[in-house]
Amino acid sequence: MSSDRRYPETVSGPFEKPPVRFADREERDIEIRPYDGSDAEYEALAEMYVEFDPSDRAQGIPPGRESRVRTWLDGILAEDCYNLIAWDGDTAAGHSTLVPDGDDDYELAIFVLQDYQEAGIGTHLIESLLGYGYSEGINCVWLTVERWNHAAVSLYEKVGFETTGAESFELEMAIRISEDE
């Protein structure tokens, strides 16, 4: 969309790579691993988004109705995207995704189900996604976030994202995880 996007010069990382296992702050055993393309994992993710608290939507996603959730998931679970799911047993507790922007870079988003928020899962989801992206040869990643969402902005800054665009409704942030060739 904007090929003139600025990226930090400093390379961030290295980041952990999936699969990642840890006990969250509620002592739940969480495993983060790449989406395997199976119907079972797709359905678990669809279920997570149908249960998603509407007040935690951001910029229109996840969409509100199940049919729209599925259309949206079909797009971001496509083969040219990179997806990680955080599992509590068979329950999808969180999801992070990298979607190609057509300019060789990737847009990032992350979602954590309400019951699993503030337990350290988001940090692992984003760091292991950046580690996954690095191992797949991605150089730069960007995202947009609502400017009042201080918790999200702090999380992104903690892992190395810098604000690159502040002149529109949303903040745009970007991170470099590898040097350009």
Binding site: Q59, G60, W72, P100, G102
Partner: peptide
């Protein structure tokens, strides 16, 4: 208008 991820974007003109 949406980003590749599907996020609604309000561009500068609309704003």
């Amino acid at each position: 208008q949406t980003s590749p991820m599907g996020k609604i974007r309000i561009d500068n003109t609309v704003e």
